[in-house]
Design a protein around this nucleic acid. Structure first.
Lengths: 197, 197
DNA sequence: TTATTTTTTGAACCTATGTTTAAAATTCAT
DNA sequence: ATGAATTTTAAACATAGGTTCAAAAAATAA
């Protein structure tokens, strides 16, 4: 019966997480204050504690939310019936779009070991590993189907994800190149490392 | 005559900067406390203020120190008489070695805009731009000499530096692959984006 | 040695911010 | 409408950590 209540609570939690994520992008983990997260929602910081145990918990769940969005994205790509080249291209573009779109602050928290408890860290690393594995699967598939040369899968994946993740360091919403253009170019160049010729 | 004094002071400053850098690697900007920096040198946090105006100043100068080391490295590569392919390979390897060696914590401070004042940020960005330009120069030279295809220099440089900088996120001193091996592999794969064939 | 300058200390101060809490406000079921 | 459950508030509290400062210690010069 109280599913209403539960839903409402869940919705509010989501709002808070979104607000937290927004602050997180700008200020970084330690720079983010409960006050600012609350202010964006016209709430007081005290009320955050009705929904979350403490700041760590809040920001951790925020991190999880972001990771889930990313995982959803790549899962769709994996399940599509494209060939490996196109899958990798899509995965790269999807990642960049997520990383640059204002809603998502994928990896807003680099260096999670600076902020999370061991237990939390384990969970985050697990999700990251899943994400990496999806990339590996695509690359393996490409090698099997002879679309890619026989590369060191892990190395190549690290290079690709590194290049992608670094975009957040310099990307500017109002910069000369759109996320779309960037993602096209990145996909093209990165694929050159892999594709046979 | 008091060059003795000045030298001694400079040396002490260096020590402090090194200590600060070490803490920075582990804890991140906001996680670094004056107390911990001092403790590593068996000093008290109060005495840090004899050498530096405040925490911001200290960590900013720490950042500058690191950047200078990097710039020295690539300048040597630029001035060498290798061909562009080898120059780029060297620059990549040099960067990775610096980024992984314990002494250097190159870019320990990602997202400098989280921490620095406008003025400081300008200086940091200026140094980064210099560093980037060196890479661009190498790439341009390669294109001119027909060793590289006619790529989008900026894009390719961003991809390369992104991949390199991200290494610090996962590199483990005790991991399976040495920095040397990693740098070889990275150079090989990244060059595939550029080299004509 | 004595005086002067430099360096270090450690306590005090201050502020920002995470957290608690009791009371007020709101929502909701009947 | 009324009472109970839920949600929000605002103030109080606690503490970490940056900064200051006057006095002590150490180094240096005479």
């Amino acid at each position: 019966m109280s599913s209403f209540r539960a839903q409402k609570m869940a919705k509010k939690k989501q709002e808070i997480l979104r607000s937290a994520a927004a602050v997180l992008i700008e200020k970084g983990y330690q720079g983010t204050t409960m006050e600012e997260i609350a202010a964006k929602l016209l709430m007081t910081k005290g009320s955050m504690y009705y929904y979350f145990k403490n700041k760590d918990d809040l920001l951790f769940q925020c991190h999880l939310m972001i990771m889930e969005i990313c995982l959803d994205g790549i899962e769709k790509v994996i399940e599509s019936d494209r060939n490996p080249i196109e899958k990798l291209r899509c995965a790269i573009k999807e990642h960049i779009l997520l990383a640059t779109s204002e809603k998502s602050m994928f990896m807003a928290l680099s260096k999670p070991h600076h902020n999370f408890s061991d237990e939390q860290l384990q969970e985050v690393l697990g999700l990251r590993k899943s994400y990496s594995h999806y990339f590996d699967r695509i690359i393996h598939e490409g090698i099997d189907k002879q679309e890619f040369g026989s590369v060191d899968v892990k190395m190549v994946r690290l290079i690709i994800l590194g290049a992608l993740n670094w975009i957040q360091e310099w990307y500017d919403q109002n910069g000369p190149q759109s996320a779309e253009e960037i993602s096209e170019a990145y996909a093209d160049y990165l694929l050159k490392m892999l594709v046979k010729n």
